[in-house]
Amino acid sequence: MNDIDAWVWWLIGAAALGIPLVVTAMPEFGMLAVGAVAAAVMAGLGFDVVVQVLVFAVVSVALIAVVRPIATRHRSQRPRLATGIEALKGKQALVLERVDGGDGGRIKLNGEVWSARSLDTDRAYEAGQEVDVVDIEGATAIVM
């Protein structure tokens, strides 16, 4: 055991912390692994065990205290750019053929002609009116 330098043990510890990071996808293990790498650097520079453990603890705690809240906030934010069907919801469209809740009709949405039906089955929209797209069901826009 004394034949292996301390920095090697710290790197083995970092690799061991990387395994649960990959398996559980918990970033805290990665932050602890970075702390172990920092301790390995201190060991490689010749610092004693007390300094190595202190560097491991300080780097790990600092990463968890600073990076984790940023990552959590970033993960909880909705994407800023809506794409696909989500991008069409809330857009305005022009009625090309009468749209009602039964047979539906046609609208021009984002330069394309879509089949559409009214959200309110008792409501109809005549050609030339502007409507708001509230949902997309298959290839049919639901408007109001």
Score class of each variant (00 low, 15 high):
I70C: 06
V50P: 00
A71H: 05
W10N: 00
I136G: 00
G44W: 14
A127V: 03
G128S: 13
V8S: 01
V131Y: 02
A33K: 09
D100L: 10
L32P: 04
L17W: 08
A127S: 09
G30Y: 08
K91F: 00
W9S: 10
W9N: 11
V59G: 07
D103S: 14
G18D: 10
M144I: 00
K108Y: 07
D5G: 13
G46N: 02
I64Q: 04
L63P: 08
I85A: 15
I19F: 03
A39P: 05
G111Q: 05
M144E: 11
V61F: 01
D122R: 09
N110M: 13
T83Y: 06
I12F: 02
K89W: 03
A6Q: 11
I70T: 07
L109S: 00
A87H: 00
W9E: 10
A124W: 03
A139Y: 04
D122N: 10
H74V: 09
E126H: 08
K89E: 10
F29Y: 15
V66H: 04
S76K: 14
F47G: 07
D3M: 11
G101A: 13
L119I: 06
F29N: 13
V131G: 03
A82N: 09
L63G: 15
E28M: 14
G18S: 09
L81W: 05
D132S: 13
G104R: 05
A127Y: 00
L88K: 01
V99W: 06
L11R: 05
